[in-house]
């Protein structure tokens, strides 16, 4: 393998990893606060891709505007899912919310089948993302750079909100102790809604970029990336945002490199992620950066 091809693989790994990381952040934030695996998150990812498709074909929006509108609309859907399907179950046993999440997942998939039809759709891709550039002997699609750069910006924006703003402080507080946060005057339900909104926005951005890279839309397109991002979140330590980013990147790199070095195993690339999940759960269930469950004193 030449160095150029190796670099190409690394870039691909970075792209795929960033996409996983963006989805994984949403899983990990919701889990960190509600101890809930939001299974509907894969469908949020899928809606992002379709909403851009709608924006461009149905509303004839310019692509950048369609992108922003889709992210905003999906964030609203995420908030709505929490309001309708999870918030009424806040005081119920945790398993009830989990079942509700699975229900929402199926519901959104089927809504997508009705609205967008089950046939795979072609995605509009702006031309400037398509024309290859030569950088240091490596042939690079602008898309391959666009994805990691935009992902990085989004992640930095999220980190800023979480670690340097007042609502972010509220989020970090309720992730540890909802009741005491409420005592401090933190509006718990609004902060949870904000968490769903932010997580969904990132998943939507991931879905949109995913559709640029693998340009086909299907109502079930979120399922496999969703599972893998979930694995990335567990691997990084569920509840930890930096963990989700690292987990996503590691999974993306490993997947690309395994296929690159062992082409015979290409058919197992999805299975590989699940093997990783099983190993993590057996060896270090709290993941790379996950907190040890604390004993109540």
């Amino acid at each position: 393998m030449t160095i150029e091809i190796f670099l190409q693989h690394l870039l691909n790994g970075l792209t795929l990893g960033s996409l996983y990381a963006l989805i994984a952040i949403g899983y990990t934030m919701v889990y960190g606060i509600l101890r809930l695996i939001n299974f509907a998150h894969s469908e949020i990812f899928m809606l992002g891709a379709y909403f851009v498709f709608w924006g461009v074909t149905l509303f004839h929006l310019p692509w950048p505007l369609a992108l922003v509108a889709a992210v905003a609309a999906v964030a609203l859907v995420g908030v709505l899912v929490d309001r309708v399907a999870y918030r009424p179950l806040r005081d119920a046993p945790r398993i009830s919310a989990l079942i509700s999440a699975i229900g929402v997942s199926f519901f959104l998939q089927n809504v997508a089948i009705v609205l967008f039809k089950a046939i795979p759709r072609e995605v509009y891709r702006p031309e400037w993302l398509e024309n290859p550039m030569i950088m240091g002997g490596v042939r690079v699609l602008p898309l391959t750079l666009f994805v990691p750069v935009l992902s990085l910006l989004l992640m930095l924006g999220l980190m800023y909100i979480v670690y340097h703003t007042k609502p972010g402080l509220g989020m970090r507080a309720i992730s540890k102790d909802i009741e005491t946060s409420a005592l401090m005057g933190v509006p718990v339900n609004s902060i949870i809604a904000l968490t769903f909104g932010l997580g969904s926005a990132l998943a939507a951005a991931s879905g949109i970029m995913w559709a640029l890279r693998y340009p086909q839309l299907q109502p079930i397109m979120g399922v496999i990336p969703g599972f893998k991002a979930f694995i990335a979140a567990v691997f990084g330590g569920i509840g930890s945002i930096p963990g989700a980013v690292i987990g996503g990147l590691v999974l993306g790199f490993l997947e690309i490199l395994i296929v690159a070095f062992f082409p015979d195993l290409a058919g197992y690339r999805d299975a590989f992620a699940f093997v990783l999940l099983i190993v993590v759960l057996l060896v270090k269930p709290t993941g790379l950066l996950g907190a040890r469950p604390e004993e109540k004193v």
Partner: peptide, 21 residues
């Protein structure tokens, strides 16, 4: 509250800012 219930993962200053939320 009983048992102090401070936020162990946040700084003293952040704990105080939460009080002023």
């Amino acid at each position: 509250p009983e048992g102090r219930r401070i936020f162990p993962h946040l700084s003293v200053r952040e704990n105080l800012l939460l009080g002023a939320y």
